[in-house]
C-alpha cells in the first residue's frame, strides 16, 4: 500500500502538488503548532472546569466529591491557578504567534467572519427543516468560526477576570472592590457558558455527531481524508483541485 501523500492546500507552489495524485490523499488541516495549542487548551480547560465548577456550585452534591477527588480545597485552588496561568500563557502565545510570527497577511486569513457565513447560517437552519440544500463550506464553516471566536472572546474575558481574582489586592490599587466583585460574576458566568458550549455544541460537532463518531481525528493527526474534505469543506476541496490542475498543466 502506498503511503498517504500530504497535500498542502495553503501552499500551492509546493513541490508535492506538481507530481499529481496517486493513492490516498490527505489534506493538511492544522499545522503541528496549531495542534499543540489545541492540546494545551484541552488540558488546561479540563483542569479548570473540574476545579472551577465545584466553586461555582458549592451546594451541589458533586461539589465536595470533586474537591476531595482532586485533593482538597487548597489543592483545588493551586491546580486552578496553575492551569489558569497555563491558559493565559497559551492565549498570549497564540496572539503573538498568529499576529506577529505567522507570515500570512492578517486580514487575508480565512478565519474572519464574512457575509457568506451569515448566509450559510440561515441556509443551515433551512436545511435542517428540509427547505434548502446544505451550504457548501470553505476552509472554515460558520460553526467553526463561531467556535474559534467564541473561544477567543471567552479566553480574553476569563484570563483578564481570572488575573484580577488571582491578585485582588493588587487589582484594588487600580480598580474599586466593586469591580473585583464584577470579575467574579463575569468569570464564573463566562466559564459556565464556555463549558456548556464545549460539552454540548463543540463535542457534538467533532465527537458525537454520527458523521464523525467516535471522533474527528483531525485533532490528533492534523489531516483530513479526501472523503471528509469533500463532505465538510467542498469549496476548499474544489479550490485545491483547481490549483492542482493548473499547476499540473505546464
Amino acid at each position: 500500500m502506498q503511503k498517504p501523500r500530504l497535500l498542502e492546500v495553503t501552499e500551492p507552489e509546493g513541490s508535492e502538488l506538481t507530481e499529481g495524485i496517486a493513492g490516498e490523499v490527505l489534506f493538511k488541516r492544522f499545522t503541528f503548532n496549531q495542534l499543540v495549542e489545541h492540546w494545551v487548551m484541552i488540558a488546561t480547560f479540563m483542569l479548570l472546569v473540574v476545579t472551577g465548577m465545584p466553586v461555582k456550585f458549592p451546594d451541589a452534591w458533586w461539589s465536595p466529591v470533586i474537591i476531595n477527588l482532586v485533593g482538597g480545597f487548597e489543592m483545588r485552588t493551586h491546580i486552578h491557578h496553575f492551569a489558569g496561568i497555563g491558559m493565559v500563557l497559551l492565549g498570549i502565545y497564540h496572539v503573538v504567534y498568529h499576529v506577529f510570527i505567522d507570515k500570512e497577511p492578517l486580514l487575508e486569513r480565512k478565519v474572519w467572519p464574512t457575509l457568506k457565513d451569515a448566509g450559510d447560517f440561515w441556509q443551515t437552519i433551512l436545511f435542517y427543516f428540509g427547505r434548502a440544500e446544505h451550504p457548501k463550506y470553505g476552509r472554515y464553516s460558520w460553526k467553526e468560526k463561531f467556535d474559534y471566536w467564541g473561544a477567543f472572546w471567552g479566553m480574553v474575558m476569563l484570563c483578564v477576570t481570572g488575573l484580577i481574582m488571582l491578585y485582588p489586592f493588587v487589582a484594588m490599587n487600580y480598580i474599586p472592590y466593586a469591580y473585583v466583585h464584577l470579575a467574579t460574576i463575569v468569570h464564573t458566568d463566562e466559564a459556565l457558558l464556555a463549558t456548556l458550549f464545549i460539552f454540548i455544541v463543540h463535542w457534538w460537532n467533532v465527537h458525537f455527531s454520527p458523521e464523525v463518531f467516535p471522533m474527528s481525528k483531525a485533532w490528533i493527526t492534523g489531516n483530513l481524508s479526501e472523503q471528509q474534505m469533500k463532505h465538510e469543506h467542498p469549496l476548499e476541496y474544489e479550490e485545491a483541485m483547481r490549483q492542482m490542475q493548473t499547476s499540473e498543466k505546464p
Binding site: P168, F169, M172, N173, Y174, I175, P176, Y177, A178, Y179, V180, H181
Partner: peptide, 14 residues
C-alpha cells in the same frame, strides 16, 4: 491579605 495599601479601593463595593 498583607501588603494591602491604604489607598486600595476596597470600600467602593459591598
Amino acid at each position: 491579605h498583607p501588603g494591602t495599601k491604604f489607598d486600595a479601593k476596597i470600600a467602593a463595593g459591598l
